[in-house]
């Protein structure tokens, strides 16, 4: 008796997007990262090509890291006050990309000028050779001043700049287009808005093929099931042929996981002094490991042990089954 082939056949695939430019392409990066290309759901390689492996970016801040939990401060030591040194350390820890968050551009957290932000971006670009994600502070008016300066300072480096949102995308679309960067499009855990932001950016002239999407991440215990199902639904539509949902997906895991109280000071009776410091790492790794299964091209992480754990997990998930 023959066993029927029940594998799913997909009509389409996830876009491939390359971040970073080497000297050959007019940049100064020593490596680039290509995301996407999946022709099937994650880790179901018998149904189609899994595409490029999930890339790991490590998050650094341009200031304000003194508020980070001790477990992270201990891991990075005194580099946290210097974005360039911090980026180098992150690369040592296995970062394939650096995700620079311009926290101190925020009007309530330093209000650094666009010029100062651009200087920080240059400092990081000089310190490391991996491609760069630059993330604004999230305040529309300030981002619309900061990101053009950042974009110009990093011209030619083919960075991923974010974020474009439903109510604020025109400025970022224009500068990314002018300076040839890739665009990170954000939506608030809402697949309809995710699609809408993409079409708005396309209408404004930005190519769909050069976009990465950030559907908003929630940590384990903080809405991860919503994140999972929205990402999965987007992935199914994208593989099914919806070109507006076929962009590589970024998950902001470190930022969200370390906001959880369980990560910083686990409120459980069973926590001992030996295990207390492991909670944050496990919270971060578990959040990433769960989300990976909905289809994620780019993970932004923080703790070196979480990075190591996720790299092992990815290797295990993608290893060929024994014959």
């Amino acid at each position: 008796m023959t066993i029927p082939d029940t594998s799913e056949k997909w009509a389409s695939s996830i876009n491939e997007v390359t971040i970073g430019a080497t000297a050959e392409d007019g940049g100064t990066r020593t490596s680039t990262v290509t995301l996407g290309g999946a022709k099937a759901l994650p880790f179901l390689s018998f149904e189609g090509s899994p595409g490029r492996p999930t890339a790991i970016a490590v998050e650094i801040w341009d200031g304000g890291a003194e508020a980070w939990p001790d477990q992270l401060k201990d891991a990075y030591g005194d580099v946290l006050s210097s974005p360039g040194e911090w980026a180098k350390k992150a690369v040592e820890f296995g970062a394939e990309m650096i995700c620079l968050r311009l926290m101190s551009a925020h009007p309530d957290a330093g209000d650094r000028s666009p010029e100062q932000c651009a200087e920080t971006v240059k400092e990081v670009l000089q310190a490391v050779g991996v491609p760069l994600i630059v993330w604004g502070c999230g305040v529309d008016e300030k981002d619309n001043e900061t990101l053009p300066a950042v974009s110009a300072a990093a011209k030619g480096e083919n960075c991923l700049l974010g974020t474009a949102r439903e109510k604020n995308y025109r400025t970022l679309v224009a500068v990314c287009q002018a300076d040839k960067h890739k665009l990170l499009a954000e939506s608030p855990l809402d697949i309809n808005i995710a699609k809408q932001v993409n079409i708005l950016c396309t209408d404004a002239g930005f190519p769909l093929e050069d976009m990465v999407v950030f559907p908003t991440t929630g940590a384990l215990g903080y809405g991860i099931e919503y994140v999972y199902s929205i990402q999965e639904r987007g992935r199914l539509a994208g593989l099914g042929g919806d070109k507006l949902l076929a962009q590589p997906v970024l998950c902001d895991v470190g930022y969200e996981a370390w906001r959880a109280k369980e990560a910083k000071a686990p409120p459980f009776a069973c926590v001992t002094d030996e295990t207390r410091n492991e909670w944050g790492i496990m919270w971060e790794a578990a959040t990433a490991a769960v989300l990976l299964q909905s289809g994620v091209e780019l993970l932004v992480l923080r703790h070196p042990k979480a990075i190591e754990y996720i790299k092992q997990t990815l290797a295990r998930f993608t290893q060929a089954a024994p014959a």
Binding site: N192, I199, T202, D203, R233, A237, D242, L244
Partner: peptide, 15 residues
């Protein structure tokens, strides 16, 4: 058969 967005008609026409 299609994911909604406010501009779904335009999205469908384009893609």
């Amino acid at each position: 058969r299609m994911v909604y967005c406010d501009s779904y008609l335009q999205a469908a026409r384009q893609t």
